[in-house]
Amino acid sequence: MSIVSRGFHGRRGGDPALPPGQYLTEDFPVLSAGPTPRVPPAAWTFTITNAAGASRRWTWREYLALPAERPHVDIHCVTKWSKLGTDWEGVSLDTLFEEVEPDAPYAMIECYGGYTTNLPVEDLLDGKAWVAHGFGGEPLHPEHGGPARLLVPHLYFWKSAKWVSGIRLMDHDEPGFWEAAGYHNYGDPWREQRYEGD
C-alpha cells in the first residue's frame, strides 16, 4: 500500500508508451560512468567472438558496407527518463551474426573505455538489437556513444552500451559493469527491473 503524498498532483501524461516509474523527456540526457572516450572511426573495429573461439572483426569501412536499417524506437533509461520515437541508423545484429555462429546463451558487450554489460543472446537476435552509428539523421555524437553503440531498446538503456567494440559469447552468465554494482541483471523496463532483486 503506497503512501499518498498530501498535495501531490503530478503531471500525468498518461502515455501508455511509458513504462512504470518513467517520465517523458524531449532532450537526450547523457549518462556515462567516466570520461567520454574519443575513438576515431579509422581506429574503430568491432569483433564478435563466440564460445568456440571463432571470431569475426569488422573495420569501420567494412561495417559501413553492411546493409543498414533505420529503427524507430522508444528508449528507457533506468534513471527514469524515457524518450519516445527516436530515429537511429545501424546494422542489425542478425546481419552481424550471419558471419559468426551464435553458439552460446549469454553475451558480454565490450566497449572502448572498459565498460561492459551482459545480456542473453536471444535478446540480441530476431530484429531486437543493432549496432548504431546514426541518430536523428546525424552521425552518432561521441557523448552518445559514437562512432557506434549498441541499441537494445526493449531493455533499460544501460544495456545499449556506448563506444561498443565487440561481443563475447559465454556459456555461463557473468555480470557487466552496472550489473556488478547493484543494478538488475536483465533490466526489463516494463517489469521495472531497475535494481538487483526487482
Partner: peptide, 27 residues
C-alpha cells in the same frame, strides 16, 4: 562533466580513475 573530465584526461589523469555522474538537462 564533459568539459571537466576531458580537461583532467588532457592533464594526464588516468581515465580509469575519473568517475562521473551527469545530470541531464531535464529531470
Amino acid at each position: 562533466v564533459e568539459a571537466t573530465s576531458t580537461l583532467l584526461v588532457d592533464l594526464g589523469h588516468d581515465p580509469r580513475r575519473i568517475r562521473t555522474e551527469r545530470f541531464g538537462p531535464t529531470g
